[in-house]
């Protein structure tokens, strides 16, 4: 064991612990923000009693989830029923591994990139892992052995696989320009111009698909409260129920991070080049980290904003939007990108 290896392992462990906590704490805060922002948009107050203006509400919720009875009804398939919430949360968390949070930090004379695993196939890894999340929902729906969860689970699977195609295709345009699937390369190439300006169609398709993949309104078919009670988690209670919500919020954070990385320049700040970040040293790294988190939070706010702006789609509208509008649009975007990048 040489010193480099020890340093690599230690720095990675610290990064893993910090990033997981960022994701989970943000997911908890998101559950509060969701209710507070919803309340503001509907001229209500929202939860404002626990702690300082309601900031400790997530902790109170978590404690309540832990102390509530965990009802496992007799009619469920036990193994899948217990497994489903874990499968819903773990892939969402795992996709964080390839998202770069900021410019490299310098610690003890060594460079530490602010990404857990700098994989060559970064984005393929995200798609591979994120698509596992659908299993959690399908298992939950099937194992519950109850009508509403069953409907929700089947709907969710159809919806998520339909939008996964357009999601995958919409980023192909980005890779044709970058020539690399590595997240750090994608960020580095957006120094001059963010890809949301050079790839507007891909950006639009990706954002719409991100809403569908995270089961958010206007595409929250799997859990449509007014028609399916609570969809796939109707039969769940206590901590298992909370797992689904944490999974959903973590997935929202991951997709915000992906959008920020792929289309909004990652940690880049407009009119600030990579050299300026490097010249600032560790302060530059922190500034980049703050910029990245600001973009993520702005997008998380956008999620809530859309939720209270656009009503829910019907299921047939949802399917025809995915297959008949977004998929041809994504294919056309790939071809258009190729055409624009031909040497004249």
């Amino acid at each position: 064991m040489n010193q480099d290896l020890i340093f690599y392992v230690a720095s990675n462990l610290v990064k893993i612990i910090i990033f997981t906590h960022i994701a989970l704490i943000l997911a908890a805060l998101m559950s509060l923000a969701e209710r507070r922002v919803s309340a503001v948009m509907q001229s209500r107050l929202g939860p404002n009693r626990v702690g300082f203006g309601g900031i400790l509400q997530p902790i109170a919720d978590a404690l309540k989830f832990i102390f509530k009875e965990d009802v496992v009804p007799g009619h469920v398939e036990k193994v899948l029923f217990v497994l489903a919430p874990a499968i819903a949360l773990i892939p969402a968390l795992l996709t964080l591994a390839v998202i770069p949070f900021g410019p490299p930090l310098e610690v003890l004379g060594r460079e530490v990139p602010l990404v857990i695993a700098d994989l060559d196939i970064g984005v393929l890894f995200v798609f591979a892992i994120a698509s596992l999340g659908v299993y959690g929902i399908v298992f939950a729906g099937w194992a519950s052995n109850s009508r509403y969860p069953m409907l929700g689970g089947v709907r969710a699977s159809a919806q998520m696989i339909s939008y996964e195609l357009s999601l995958g295709l919409s980023v192909v345009g980005v890779f044709m320009v970058t020539g690399s699937l590595r997240m750090l390369d994608v960020v580095a190439l957006q120094d001059d111009m963010w890809f949301c300006f050079t790839q507007p169609v891909g950006f639009l398709v990706f954002v719409i698909c991100a809403f569908a993949e995270t089961n958010r309104l206007p595409f929250d078919m799997p859990e449509a409260e007014t028609e399916l009670v609570a969809g796939y988690h109707t039969e769940y209670s206590s901590m298992k129920f909370a797992m689904f919500f944490m999974g959903e919020y973590t997935a929202m954070f991951v997709f915000s991070g992906l959008i920020a990385t792929l289309f909004l320049g990652g940690w880049d700040i407009p009119f600030m080049s990579a050299e300026t970040f490097a010249a600032l040293g560790n302060w530059g790294a922190l500034l980049g980290f703050a910029s990245f988190m600001a973009k993520c939070c702005a997008f998380l706010f956008f999620y809530i904003w859309v939720r209270w702006t656009i009503p829910r789609f019907r299921f047939d509208q949802l399917m025809s939007l995915g297959w008949k509008v977004l998929l041809p649009l994504a294919i056309a975007n790939v071809l258009a990108t190729g055409l624009f990048n031909l040497p004249s």
């Binding site: 893993i16 874990a86 795992l94 964080l96």
Partner: peptide, 24 residues
């Protein structure tokens, strides 16, 4: 690193599930 992250994730998911069984 991904593998270690996966293990961390599994632990962080299972801990609250198991922890609650003592109290609920």
């Amino acid at each position: 690193a991904v593998l270690v992250f996966l293990i961390t994730g599994i632990v962080m998911v299972c801990a609250p599930l198991v922890m609650g069984a003592l109290f609920r």
